[in-house]
Every structure is written in C-alpha cells, then in structure tokens.
Design a protein around this nucleic acid. Structure first.
Lengths: 191, 191
DNA sequence: ACGTCTGTTCAGGAAAATTTGAACAAACTG
DNA sequence: CAGTTTGTTCAAATTTTCCTGAACAGACGT
C-alpha cells in the first residue's frame, strides 16, 4: 500500500485521468487569487487540496502542480497563515498533511477583515494627513493659492467620505449584514 | 500670463506649498489602485487631476509626478479608456487638457461591470469545463477512482455555486441594489 | 509645403517579483 | 548518537512588469 492514500490508479500510469480537470479548475482559481493580490500558486494549491477527499502532503502537491518543494513550502505556508489550509497531523506519519479550509465564505471574510480594511484605513489616514498639511500651509498663501488650496481641501473631504463609506461597507460585509451600495453613491454628494 | 492656468505662485518657486499634500494623497490612491490591479500611476494621475480645479496638460502631470511623457501618455490613455479621465479640448490651445471623472461611484461600477464580472465568468466556465471533463472520463474508471471523481465533481459544483453567487452579487452592486452577503454563505451549504 | 509642437509607440534597460537549488534546521528512526 | 527524512530559508537566476528616451506620426500655424 502506498504511503499516501489512493494517489493514482496504476503504478505505471503517472497521471490519473482526472488530473487534467483538476488542473484546469486549479488554474482558474489561481487566476482569481492572483487578481485578488495573492500568489497564483496559492489559489492552485488550495484548489488541489479542496478537490481532494483526503489530506495531501507537500510532496503530493509538488508532484501534482510540478513545483519545487520550496515553492510549495512558501505558498502553502502563506495559505496556512491565512487559515485557508490546515496542517493535519497523522499518528505514525512523519510527513505533514494538509487540508483545505472548505468554507470559502469564512476565508473571504477573513481576508477582507485583515487586509482590505487595513488598506482602506491607511488611505483614510493619508487623506487626513494631506488635509492637515494643507491647513498648516494655508496661512502663508496669497489669495489665488488660498482658493486653490480650499478646493483641494474640499475634494480631499470627499475622498475621505468615500473611503469611510467603503470602510463601513466592508465592515458590513464581514459581519454578513446587508449592504447598500447607495451609501457609496451618497457619500460623494455635496454636503 | 502662463499657458496653463495658475500653476505656481512665484516663477522662481518651482514647488508650490501644497504639492507635498497633493502627492501624499495621490500616492495613497496609487496604492489603492495598485492593489486593485491597476497601475500605480493611474491612481496617482487621477488624483492629481481630481484635486485640480482646472484641467491639466500632460506636461503639467509629468512635471508634478516627475514622470516621462511616455509614462504619462500610457497611464493617462488607460484612464481615458476606463472613463476615469476625460480629454478636454480648449479652443485656441494645441495641447490636450485632461480632467478627472469625479464620480468615483460611477467608476467603481464601470470597473466591476467590465472587469470583475468577466473574471468571474471565466472562472465559472472553467469549473464547468472541468466538470464536463470528469463526466467524460468517469466511465473508464474503476470503483475507487470513480468515488474520487464523484467527490471532485461535488466540490466543483460548490465552487460553481459560489462563483455564481458572486456574480449575482457583483451584478447587484453594479445595479446599485442592496446586497446580502448571506447569499454567498448559503451558496456553499449542501443542497 | 515646411517647421514646430504634441502625443503615441517601440525597443531597450531597470526594477520588482517569482522560482529554484542548495544549504540549513528540526524531528524522528534505528 | 548517527543517519534519514521532512520542511524552511537564502541567494542567485529567471521571468515579468514597468519605465525611459528616441523615433515616429499627426495637427497646426505660417
């Protein structure tokens, strides 16, 4: 009996018939993930695990996706860090086994919470900083410049309002509550 | 009177006092845009225009952001393509002037509509393909493999359901209608 | 029609991100 | 404790992306 559970049908047929389908799905998810700002391989690895009934080892994954063990280690580590993959310990086995977190919703939430919210907050801070900067400089300016600075200030307020609306929106998403996109819309109407 | 409207206070002071603030905001937006899968410079350029009361020329922009004219042309072109910036023609002026589309909401919608929806649809198609592939191969398999393929098939159905829920969700967003994140959640519960 | 001004495209080069193989570290086996 | 096996880290190399300067093309004024 082979070390890892049913991996391939015949010992001499190295590519099971379903491999093609598996890779196709994995790649699609890889693209999504890449677009979402993660490594391509993270999506691919996750998908392979997600489609597998049994936990897999890093060697299985490297073999499936034709990756070096270091690449697997790196991306898999990141997946574990994000809680998208869990390490499974099997008594009597030396290798680690990995299993996909199968609740995509949970994962989405976690990412929005940890990453997107921070990003938005940073932007909010930067806009506020810029405004403060303008206010400090305002005194030393001539009439024409003052008009210009006031304009910028107003626009920055609008960007702030928008970002804050975005933040609220993501918060609601994370909380699983209803979202009204019109909030964004109204955030940029004149006050 | 200088060609482009009030650009700097003193002819000998090349950096207006507000430049610092402007750049700070522009960079923040650049980061957001980069994260969102666009070029950094697109966010920066848009912000400079957004903060300017008057339309600006490519030369103004290159000067402000310290970019080569080709870089400005490229990113600005893309912004125009996305409708984020409009070309303004001024009678008697040979240069083109540019102005930011100031409705961020409108821009968000357009991007989600043109880009994110396509992306999701591609993923949906890929999952469907993978499933078809599995169905075709199923006949030639032994019992053990068949069990495995059936498992994959079920999981792919779940990914499909999720993607479709995501698609609906984005559609609602684009339409400005209320969104219920719980739809995603329920998309991955067993049917 | 010619020269000038403006914007775009392109090939080359710089910078950034990914990937790998090898060295290292840690955990287990006999 | 020595020898394996497994996983991680690191520098180097590759690939990819981005940016620039120069060549090109179009529009305008004279």
């Amino acid at each position: 009996m082979p070390t890892a559970a049913a991996k391939q049908q015949n010992p001499n047929d190295s590519k099971p018939l379903w491999r093609e389908a598996e890779l196709r799905a994995a790649d699609a998810m890889g693209r999504l993930m890449e677009f979402w700002g993660f490594r391509r391989h993270m999506g691919r690895l996750w998908t392979i695990l997600y489609l597998s009934p049994d936990p897999m080892t890093t060697a299985d994954l490297a073999e499936t996706l034709q990756l070096s063990s270091s690449a697997v280690s790196l991306s898999l580590g990141e997946l574990v860090h994000w809680g998208a993959v869990r390490k499974i310990w099997r008594p009597g086995e030396r290798k680690d086994f990995y299993q996909a977190e199968s609740s995509v919703w949970k994962l989405l939430r976690r990412v929005y919470e940890r990453r997107e919210l921070n990003l938005i907050r940073e932007a909010i801070d930067a806009f506020a900083d810029a405004q403060r900067h303008l206010e400090e400089a305002r005194g030393e300016l001539g009439r024409e410049d003052r008009r210009r600075v006031d304009y910028m200030h107003k626009r920055l307020s609008r960007l702030s309002a928008l970002s804050k609306a975005g933040e609220r929106l993501v918060r609601l998403l994370v909380a699983g509550r209803m979202i009204n996109p019109a909030d964004l819309q109204s955030a940029e109407e004149e006050e």
